[in-house]
């Protein structure tokens, strides 16, 4: 701070006379504003582009048939574009990942924030950070070569590329988000709350689950929503383990997610099929928007309390 003050006006960063200095300030302000505007422009552009290119197919197919049709035959002689299987698969897959991932992630967060010694915590925290840095294609690769054959043998299936495999991979992928956000929320709970509880004779575990967790509940909820967003938007890893057949979701069957529906057919698509893929992307986009809105509401609530 000191250094900046001393440097100001002396080492040539800002001009000396009053007029040029004001112009310089305005110029820089404008530059910063433009940089900020770029992000907004990109979001606007992508939204408008998706809506413009996603709507024609929906109009042609019919909204109800598109959203609730249970058959996807995009290249058939009489093509059918029902994306209900994809929507349900995305919902089930995400729900499964959350059901598996949240308990593990939540308990890890409690352990890291309240119970673990500094050394153990440092090791686990580093591992979690590394986990979030692993590219999704690596998750997919390991899922494909280890998890899928394991599921095949465990359940005596012909092929192990199933919804279950996708759920396991997604659960591992959402863990770091749930752990780090929940931990931050738990660590932000004022010490006085816990000390008061302990002073009243509650045990440590009682204190953490009756006092700290409720106090951090909005942050923990935000971590879950963040995990949902991550899981529903994942394409690469899921594409490598789920088999990509447009079946109605069932745990031990090959399934196709909203994301993989777009990704797997895009390269060879044409005509209405391609437009329909944009429509799927639009549906996915709306899902993510909803989730982000939920996240914003939760975080706001957390700040108020």
């Amino acid at each position: 701070m000191k250094r900046i003050l001393k440097g100001n006006g002396q080492n040539g960063l800002a001009p000396k006379t009053k007029g040029t200095r004001a112009a310089f300030e305005t110029g820089m302000n404008l530059l910063f504003f433009l940089c900020g505007a770029v992000a907004v422009l990109f979001v606007l552009f992508i939204s408008i582009y998706l809506i413009v290119s996603g709507l024609p197919a929906i109009r042609e197919i019919g909204l109800a048939e598109f959203l609730f049709g249970d058959t996807w035959k995009s290249t058939g002689k009489e093509p059918q574009f029902g994306i209900l299987p994809f929507i349900l698969t995305s919902v089930y897959g995400t729900a499964g990942a959350i059901v598996v991932g949240v308990p593990i992630g939540f308990l890890t967060a409690v352990f890291l924030s309240k119970l673990a010694g500094p050394r153990v915590a440092a090791i686990i925290r580093t591992a979690v950070e590394l986990l979030s840095g692993i590219p999704s294609v690596v998750y997919g690769l390991i899922g494909m070569t280890v998890l899928v054959p394991a599921i095949r043998t465990a359940f005596h299936l012909a092929s192990g590329a199933t919804l279950l495999a996708a759920i396991v991979v997604l659960a591992i992928m959402v863990l770091p988000y749930i752990i780090s956000v929940s931990e931050t929320a738990l660590s932000a709970v004022p010490k006085e709350y816990e000390e008061a509880s302990l002073a009243l004779g509650a045990t440590e575990i009682e204190t953490y689950f009756r006092v700290s967790v409720p106090a951090a509940s909005s942050g923990i909820a935000a971590s879950v929503v963040l995990g949902v967003g991550r899981a529903i938007g994942e394409a690469m890893a899921v594409m490598m383990v789920a088999g990509n057949v447009a079946n109605m979701p069932s745990l031990l069957q090959s399934v196709r997610f909203l994301t993989t529906a777009v990704a797997s057919e895009m390269s060879y698509s044409s005509g209405l099929q391609r437009q329909a893929l944009f429509s799927i992307a639009l549906v996915l986009f709306l899902f993510i928007m909803l989730i982000n809105a939920a996240l914003a509401v939760l975080l706001k609530k957390g700040k108020k309390s």
Binding site: K73, G76, K77, M144, T145, V148, P149, R152, A158, S159, G160, A161, M239, M240, G243, N244, V245, S254, R256, A263, S264, S267
Partner: peptide
């Protein structure tokens, strides 16, 4: 056409080969 019942639909020839080489059936 339109009658295939796939266990997996993969996006490249290499992926099909790998899946076949790792799946006994």
């Amino acid at each position: 056409e339109e009658a295939c019942s796939y266990a997996q639909e993969l996006t490249s020839t290499g992926a099909v080969r790998t899946a076949v080489s790792t799946t006994p059936g």
